[in-house]
Nucleic acid binder design. Sequence first.
DNA 1: CAGAACTTTCAAAAAATATTGAAAATTCAG
DNA 2: CTGAATTTTCAATATTTTTTGAAAGTTCTG
Lengths: 169, 169
Amino acid sequence: MTLQEGKEQFVQTWGALGSKWGINRTMAQVHALLLISPEALTASEVKETLGISMGNANMNLRALIDWGLIRKEHKLGHRKEYYFAEKDIWKVAQQIIAERKKRELTPIQSVLSELQQIEGEGEEVDSFKKMIDDLAEFSNFADKTLDTVATSDRNWMVNSFMKLLGNKK
Amino acid sequence: MTLQEGKEQFVQTWGALGSKWGINRTMAQVHALLLISPEALTASEVKETLGISMGNANMNLRALIDWGLIRKEHKLGHRKEYYFAEKDIWKVAQQIIAERKKRELTPIQSVLSELQQIEGEGEEVDSFKKMIDDLAEFSNFADKTLDTVATSDRNWMVNSFMKLLGNKK
DNA sequence: CAGAACTTTCAAAAAATATTGAAAATTCAG
DNA sequence: CTGAATTTTCAATATTTTTTGAAAGTTCTG
């Protein structure tokens, strides 16, 4: 397999993975492309490489900036904007965790608190409340765990989990 | 908020969450419905409650069985099949983790090993290989961590992560 | 400051995904 | 076994999501 083939397969694979996780396939491909690009790229280069329209390239680049996964760069003497990705995979993971937590976990927690307020008594109400309580407890656990992971450095992560693995039995 | 309203909002919310995570909205709603249903339900009841077709109900129920999140039950003297969900949220989480790991992480790891085989030399090849290596290392870490989480009981999970949180600083 | 280069927006079109409904298959009571 | 009840399948349809492309906006050079 040549470098070129490898890069293409990587972009495809990353795109497929993204779409399984509720992330736009093209956005994931743009991210993949920038991850393996040593140099910052222009929107036009992204457009050409992936065979997408300018508007599409632009929208997905902006979405990636919103996610904190890539940044813009002005090159002196150049008119165009250059885009480059955070290359440290551990930081990438932390950023994704932090964003999804903010976008999804927090709203769920607020819905769960509301649902804990339902009125009425009886077996049915109790069992509903039990499920909501369990979910709230679980999401609390997830919240704390993800916070810890998302604010830790790589060495801490690896060490702690290795310890965890060792302790288990 | 009444029980009925609460149940409806829960089903809606769970459906919306699922669709953000690459899970069919209706499948997530069916799951939500069974999670908060003290009794096992027939496909017809699911169809009626969610206002979907029989075919759709059937397909999503089967998908949930494939995911190991619900099971069928034959009731003596009844012709119909009854469906019920695993209610222990920690087990549900473990099941989802185990399934997604099997369906997504494993295939990615195999692609990454292939990509480590690319030929050629030079700066560009080295930086590509570096990224692939980093991803492989990360996915290994994720694999082990998720394995640990997915095979542990709830108390072990809570305790360990609480320790982890305590140790951090 | 004019206008070329580049970026952004967004309504319309295309593509991908989910749903229906009707037919086929299966199951089981009588 | 028979046939009514129920479940399953899947091609056609509907819905949702993504992409395009053209127009508007912005920026910066000369």
